[in-house]
């Protein structure tokens, strides 16, 4: 099994090389700004001088979407082995997986009914 990961490891090195290459060539070419000014290096805000700090406060809405995502993500870790063994499972075992999914669907419906999935 580990032999297969030799390839993955080398591909990772190649990918890293590619990334560093694209990143490094302009750096090696020394394409630095010849004239620098504070106007040039200001954060771009459509022509206005930036005002205040960039880390503005966010709505908790984003956090709720991430929560729902997290729950479904963990569900996937359970369901992938289940789907993999699907052919070997008896009917009731498939039903168990279905109940697992239905419980999560219930959670989704609850969140939905509470109005947490609305974009405010």
């Amino acid at each position: 099994m580990l032999e297969q990961f030799t390839f993955v490891g080398f591909l990772f090195l190649v990918a890293l090389f590619l990334g560093l290459f694209m990143f490094g060539v302009p750096w090696l070419l020394r394409l630095r700004p010849r004239k620098s000014s504070s106007y040039k290096s200001d954060p771009y805000e459509c022509g206005l001088r930036p005002h205040g700090e960039a880390w503005v406060q966010f709505k908790a809405q984003y956090y709720i979407f991430a929560l729902v995502f997290l729950v479904f993500d963990v569900e996937a870790v359970f369901l992938f082995p289940w789907a993999l063994a699907y052919h070997h499972l008896a009917f009731y075992a498939v039903l168990e997986g279905v109940i697992f999914i239905l419980l999560l669907t219930a959670a989704l419906i609850y969140v939905w009914r509470k109005g947490a999935l609305e974009w405010m």
Binding site: P26, W27, L31, P33, S41, P43
Partner: peptide
């Protein structure tokens, strides 16, 4: 793309 000037923003 490779030869464009690379601007480094402040902060």
């Amino acid at each position: 793309m490779f030869t464009k000037e690379d601007i480094r923003p402040q902060g």
